[in-house]
């Protein structure tokens, strides 16, 4: 027998209780989505001839990030002190890195959006939103340096995507988060949810093919990284092995394997691969499943660390 009672424990934080609720997974999901959208926009702009979809992706990135930051703000217990994030820089705190990274993401996505317009289409845009005409100089700059802007977009997208995972893996005293794989895993997952979201937003045949190919690669990489994550925990010390057990028979087993692995990865991957040979019509099924799996991955991993 081995029983532990705690008396007079703090009911708000009994060890193992979940202090980060829905807000953090929502933020990590939307942050990864935003990162993926900007990377995809930069990757595909010169490869597919669907400027509307690329513009949509670029515009959706900062909007998704803003909604995510709204959720993050809701999670703060001292909401008026939010400005404190920008009063210092803490080298050891990924959350501090993230706070400053978010600030860099907005100007890059604005530049990216401006670089997608030529002077003609920008003039049309200014006709609709007269305030935009003040950005004419910036637009000419972004257009002239569009390769540089694309690179900045890809870099800040990778930074943001990796950061959403590092945020957890840096809290290494909690065994389930003590894995360097989380950074790349969340980046790839954000990338694949972004491809899925864009499939829903834009139905053009050319971009659909490109997105499907990107998504297949991303999902395959994600499956490999999830395997590495579990192997890493299983080959760690006793506490990490206990953390792995959360997914292998423990309380998170059913949700993890059904929502993340089967719904989010294996079924969409199989359907995507079969789409061409079986001449399946593209539907909303694959993207919706990928989005569900991406969100479930974050929700489950945020809880897992707090349970380990």
């Amino acid at each position: 027998m081995h029983e532990i009672y705690t008396m007079n424990t703090n009911p708000l934080t009994p060890a193992g209780a979940v202090m980060w609720g829905w807000e953090i997974p929502v933020y990590l999901f939307l942050g990864g989505l935003a990162a993926g959208l900007l990377i995809i926009a930069a990757l595909l702009r010169s490869r597919v001839d669907e400027p509307r979809a690329i513009r949509l992706a670029t515009l959706a990135a900062p909007i998704a990030l803003s909604i995510g930051m709204g959720a993050l703000w809701l999670d703060l217990a001292y909401k008026l002190h939010v400005y404190r994030f920008y009063g210092s820089f803490q080298l050891s705190s990924p959350m501090s890195w993230g706070a400053w990274l978010l600030v860099a993401f907005y100007p890059v996505s604005v530049l990216m959006y401006l670089s997608l317009h030529d002077s003609e289409s920008f003039a049309r845009l200014c006709g609709r939103f007269s305030l935009l005409s003040r950005l004419e100089g910036l637009q000419r700059f972004a257009r002239a340096r569009r390769v540089g802007v694309e690179r900045a977009a890809i870099l800040s997208g990778i930074g943001l995507g990796v950061y959403t995972g590092i945020l957890l893996s840096a809290l290494s005293a909690r065994a389930a988060w003590n894995s360097a794989v989380l950074g790349p895993l969340f980046l790839v997952s954000g990338f694949s949810t972004a491809a899925a979201a864009l499939m829903l937003l834009s139905r053009g045949a050319q971009i659909h093919g490109a997105l499907r190919r990107l998504d297949v690669v991303a999902i395959a990489a994600e499956l490999a990284l999830i395997g590495l994550f579990l192997i890493g925990l299983l080959s760690g010390g006793a506490t990490q092995q206990r953390a792995a057990a959360l997914f292998l028979g423990g309380p998170l087993t059913a949700t993890f394997w059904s929502l993340v692995v089967v719904t989010g990865l294996v079924v969409p991957l199989s359907l995507s691969l079969l789409e061409r040979p079986l001449k399946l019509r593209p539907t909303a099924v694959i993207p919706v499943m990928v989005l569900i799996g991406g969100f479930a991955l974050r929700w489950i991993l945020v809880s897992a660390g707090q349970l380990s």
């Binding site: 202090m19 217990a77 939010v82 994030f85 009063g87």
Partner: peptide, 8 residues
């Protein structure tokens, strides 16, 4: 006075 209540 510096805490934002982020719970990290």
């Amino acid at each position: 006075n510096k805490c934002t209540g982020c719970k990290a």
